[in-house]
């Protein structure tokens, strides 16, 4: 099972490091990262494997949402099923 983490906000030092640290702490393995900086805006999409999470999935959602709030970033963590069901027949 995979989850998709998206981060959008003003660019600042260490955004990827902060998100990656949370992922490592809870056992979410990062499989793919795509990121770009447009003017001052930072946008990142990260696909993580959540099969070996050491906390419930919703715990990871809460941790990343809190991290986003602390850093004025919009961080969303969503189970892959929503994308698969909406965009695959």
């Amino acid at each position: 099972m995979k989850a998709v983490i998206t981060v959008v906000g003003h660019d600042s030092m260490g955004i990827i490091a902060k998100v990656s640290t949370v992922c490592a702490e809870v056992g979410a393995n990062i499989e793919d990262i795509s990121q770009s900086v447009l003017k001052d805006y930072f946008a990142m999409v990260m696909v993580v494997d959540i099969d070996k999470l050491n906390i419930p999935f919703n715990g990871l959602v809460d941790k990343l949402t809190d991290l986003g709030k602390q850093n004025s970033l919009d961080i969303r963590t969503m189970h892959e099923d929503i994308f698969n069901s909406m965009h695959r027949i």
Partner: peptide, 14 residues
């Protein structure tokens, strides 16, 4: 999962 699909879904919600 396609990047555009991800962004489309998130845009719809946000």
């Amino acid at each position: 999962i396609n990047l555009n699909d991800i962004l489309e879904t998130i845009n719809m919600i946000k």
